[in-house]
């Protein structure tokens, strides 16, 4: 299945060992294993199940995980920006939606939200967007 980065570009499959995490995983149990992995995959059983968003943020913010964080399973192009905003850095796109649809979801010129969103010092979100752009 196609793998894309935070710009929606196709990237090559990685061969490094991955820690696969179910959406109901206990974050502290996952955290204990994080040191051994540079790739964590969070499963989305179906796109409506939003636990992966919180799990991703928790691993990034509470446990300081800095490696590759990958979304796997069923998620929509319409969720692409939110996934990026929660700290995902790579995406195994599901068969229902080809990789091009993800790139299309990041149309340039889309502005980042209303006043508070723009001003609020969301250090992490800004950092992540910068990382994504780099």
């Amino acid at each position: 299945m196609p793998l894309v980065n935070t710009k929606g570009e196709l990237i090559a499959e990685t061969t490094i060992p991955a820690l696969r995490v179910a959406p109901d995983a206990k974050p502290d149990a996952v955290a204990a294993q994080l040191g051994a992995y540079a790739l964590v995959e969070i499963e989305f059983p179906k796109f409506r199940d939003g636990r992966g968003f919180t799990l991703a943020r928790t691993l990034r913010e509470r446990y300081g995980y800095a490696g590759d964080l990958r979304a796997v399973g069923h998620f929509l192009p319409d969720q692409f920006r939110a996934l990026i905003g929660c700290g995902f850095t790579s995406f195994l796109t599901p068969p229902e939606h080809d990789a091009a649809q993800y790139a299309a979801a990041l149309r340039p010129g889309r502005q980042p939200g209303q006043l508070l969103r723009r001003s609020l010092n969301r250090a992490r979100e800004a950092q992540l967007e910068q990382q994504a752009a780099a």
């Binding site: 796109f47 409506r48 199940d49 939003g50 968003f53 919180t54 943020r57 969720q79 920006r81 939110a82 996934l83 990026i84 905003g85 929660c86 939200g113 209303q114 006043l115 508070l116 969103r117 609020l120 979100e125």
Partner: peptide, 17 residues
């Protein structure tokens, strides 16, 4: 209003139970 802006398009809380 602050909470409206905060919750609009919130990346983490848009697919709640």
């Amino acid at each position: 209003e602050i909470m409206r802006q905060w919750s609009t398009d919130h990346p983490e809380f848009t697919y709640l139970p």
